[in-house]
């Protein structure tokens, strides 16, 4: 079955097609949400929201991109919306970012233990995930899509609806930012 036919079935609210979509995409959607949110519970909640959104707005899907790209976009948008809501509560962090203090500070690595990381990398990845948290939204998403989802630059460009050169720039700035954060962390903790 071609993708167009599959989308046609989804638009007609065919139960089998929808169940097939869930089975094929649930792992990718969940992992995308989970890596952005750094919490299994939040990742599961947002993953469910993503599929509800897909179900409700499949008729609006114009087919100008691949179905998986469209699903990635929904997953990223929903995850970022969730993060924004969560971060609104952290007023202290907001004031810190206003004053520009603590931009490269990483006092304590988050207690995030990713189950998909090899044992020997657990400690370092914990520090890296805490540093990723500090990045601006788009840099964070581009970096995670590249590193955890293994998406190519052109695939990331399609998901984020930007040019490949913008993706290169985002990833370059993300790596630079991470290096600065890790540098400060090293200076504070290992010297």
């Amino acid at each position: 079955m071609s993708e167009t036919e599959f989308i046609h079935l989804l638009r007609r609210r065919d139960e089998q097609a929808f169940q097939q979509l869930i089975v094929e995409q649930r792992s990718r959607v969940f992992n995308t949400c989970f890596n952005i949110l750094q919490s299994i519970e939040d990742g599961e909640d947002v993953c469910q929201d993503v599929f509800i959104e897909i179900f409700q707005s499949i008729s609006k899907f114009k087919g100008d991109s691949q179905l998986s790209t469209w699903i990635y976009r929904i997953a990223i948008t929903k995850s970022l919306e969730f993060l924004r809501k969560k971060n609104r509560k952290k007023r202290f962090g907001f004031f810190q970012s206003l004053t520009g203090q603590g931009d490269y500070e990483l006092n304590q690595p988050a207690n995030f233990d990713h189950p998909g990381i090899q044992l020997e990398n657990k400690e370092l990845s914990r520090i890296l995930f805490a540093a990723i948290e500090k990045l601006p939204e788009r840099q964070k998403v581009a970096f995670l899509l590249n590193k955890t989802e293994n998406l190519s630059y052109s695939e990331i460009a399609e998901v984020l609806e930007i040019s490949v050169s913008s993706v290169e720039s985002l990833l370059f700035r993300a790596k630079q930012g991470l290096q600065k954060i890790l540098n400060t962390y090293y200076e504070n903790n290992f010297k």
């Binding site: 139960e15 929808f18 169940q19 869930i22 649930r26 792992s27 990718r28 969940f30 992992n31 989970f34 299994i40 599961e44 993953c47 469910q48 599929f51 509800i52 179900f55 990713h114 189950p115 998909g116 990381i117 090899q118 990398n121 370092l124 990845s125 520090i127 890296l128 995930f129 540093a131 590193k147 955890t148 790596k175 991470l178 290096q179 890790l182």
Partner: peptide, 25 residues
Amino acid sequence: TLNSIDSIEQVPVSDNLAFRLDHIY
């Protein structure tokens, strides 16, 4: 540290989430 997540593996979907997703339709 930057390369520590290079060989990251996909986390399997839990039975609980699979159940929740199956009931969306």
